[in-house]
């Protein structure tokens, strides 16, 4: 066991602790500037596997947010009592417990979605995003900040998943939430709901972001000159 060395308000002395920041910026960071999927490239497996339909993408986003928030909060509370040597195992166990809770709740309330997501609900355990936030953030800050960060990251993840699955479902089956919106004349791009479409959609979104980035850099250079 690591000895709890200092009192509560000495966050600055924890090695590698993130700098102090107002709560709203902890929360806002995950949504755009450090978006888990589009910027940090974390949690790609579920992001692509379930984003062929908007319903599934949204459900997966919400389930992940629940697990992320609950486990971040718990790990932050317990951060003084978890020995450094076994911390990864302790984090994984905490996460696995909340994943089991989420899995059972989903199976009891939305059996159809639970069936569609299949093994990808238990696979939330190995979503690198959750373990990453636990190790890099939640284990080093007060519970309130961990909660804000987890909510932000969860919102960012849900947003990314909704974006990807909106594009894929709209082009791949011409529908949204399972309702046909593009009409019978639309010829669906079947490849978009296939695995290849997942890679392609995320790749194109990243290319667009890269294009926007270079445009902005050019404009800044032109303004400076």
């Amino acid at each position: 066991m690591t000895a709890p060395t200092t009192t509560v308000s000495t966050e600055a002395f924890v090695p590698g602790a993130p700098p102090a920041a107002p709560l709203w910026s902890d929360m806002a960071r995950g949504i755009a500037r450090e978006n888990p999927v589009f910027v940090q490239m974390l949690g790609l497996c579920p992001a692509m596997a379930v984003s062929n339909m908007l319903t599934n993408g949204l459900a997966m986003g919400i389930a992940t947010t629940f697990v992320l928030t609950a486990s971040s909060f718990m790990i932050s509370i317990l951060r003084r009592y978890i020995a450094t040597e076994v911390r990864i195992t302790a984090y994984v166990l905490t996460i696995a417990t909340f994943v089991t809770v989420a899995d059972l709740i989903l199976a009891a309330t939305f059996p159809v979605i639970s069936e569609a997501l299949g093994p990808f609900v238990p696979l939330i355990v190995v979503n690198c995003l959750i373990l990453g936030r636990a190790e890099a953030f939640a284990s080093k800050v007060r519970p309130v900040r961990a909660l804000a960060d987890a909510l932000g990251m969860g919102a960012g993840f849900t947003l990314a998943l909704s974006t990807l699955s909106t594009i894929r479902e709209l082009l791949g089956s011409g529908s949204l939430f399972g309702f046909n919106v593009l009409g019978p004349a639309f010829e669906p791009w079947v490849v978009m709901v296939m695995p290849a479409g997942g890679f392609l959609t995320l790749g194109l979104v990243l290319l667009l972001m890269g294009w926007y980035g270079t445009l902005k850099a050019q404009r800044a250079k032109a303004a400076a000159a």
Binding site: M41, M194, P195, A196, L200, G203, L206, L207, G210, T214
Partner: peptide, 22 residues
């Protein structure tokens, strides 16, 4: 091109590989 230097191009390549495996 500069805009494709990140992961975007890698993902498009992965998509082609996946299509080949289809």
């Amino acid at each position: 091109p500069a805009m494709a230097r990140g992961m975007g191009l890698v993902l498009v390549v992965a998509s082609c590989l996946s299509m080949a495996f289809m």
